[in-house]
C-alpha cells in the first residue's frame, strides 16, 4: 500500500513540512521514520512525505532549537534518533499553526464555495 499510488498523493507545499513535524511531535518524542509514518497516517495517506527531505528538515529545526534529539531504542528494539519538541518549538508551533490557518482561510475565501 505504501508503494502504490504515490502519484495520486499531494505534494507538500513549501514550508509546511516544518509545521507538520512540530505538530506530530506534540504527542511525544518520535524518530524520523515514525514522524513520516504519523504524517502519512494522520492525513489519511493523502500527504506524501519524501523521507529523504524529512531529515534535512529535522536538522534545520534542531539547529533553530525548536526540537531536540537524542539516540534511543524504538519499540521494536532498534536504535533510532528520537526527536522531541522544545518549549521554543511549542511556541513556534502555535505561531505557525495560526499563520497556516489564516492562509488556508484566505485561500478558501478566494476560491469561494464550491458545489461539487
Amino acid at each position: 500500500m505504501s508503494t502504490q499510488g504515490t502519484e495520486d498523493r499531494l505534494e507538500l507545499l513549501q514550508g509546511t513540512l516544518d509545521l507538520l513535524i512540530l505538530r506530530t511531535l506534540i504527542f511525544g518524542s518520535q524518530h524520523g521514520q515514525g514522524i513520516a509514518r504519523a504524517i502519512q497516517q494522520t492525513s489519511d495517506e493523502e500527504l506524501l512525505v519524501e523521507h529523504g527531505a524529512l531529515y534535512p528538515a529535522l536538522q534545520r529545526l534542531e539547529e533553530r532549537g525548536w526540537i531536540s534529539a537524542k539516540w534511543g531504542v524504538s519499540t521494536n528494539n532498534r536504535r533510532a534518533r528520537f526527536y522531541s519538541l522544545t518549549s521554543a518549538g511549542r511556541k513556534q508551533l502555535g505561531k505557525e499553526t495560526a499563520k497556516w490557518k489564516r492562509t488556508a482561510a484566505a485561500i478558501e475565501r478566494i476560491l469561494g464555495p464550491e458545489e461539487t
Binding site: 524518530h31 524520523g32 521514520q33 536538522q59 532498534r78
Partner: peptide
C-alpha cells in the same frame, strides 16, 4: 551520525514493510 540515522530509518521502514 546523520548517516547512521538514515540507515536506522531504512531499517525501521524495511521492518514495517516486512510486517505487511
Amino acid at each position: 551520525d546523520f548517516g547512521a540515522e538514515i540507515e536506522a530509518h531504512i531499517e525501521l521502514e524495511t521492518e514495517r514493510l516486512r510486517e505487511q
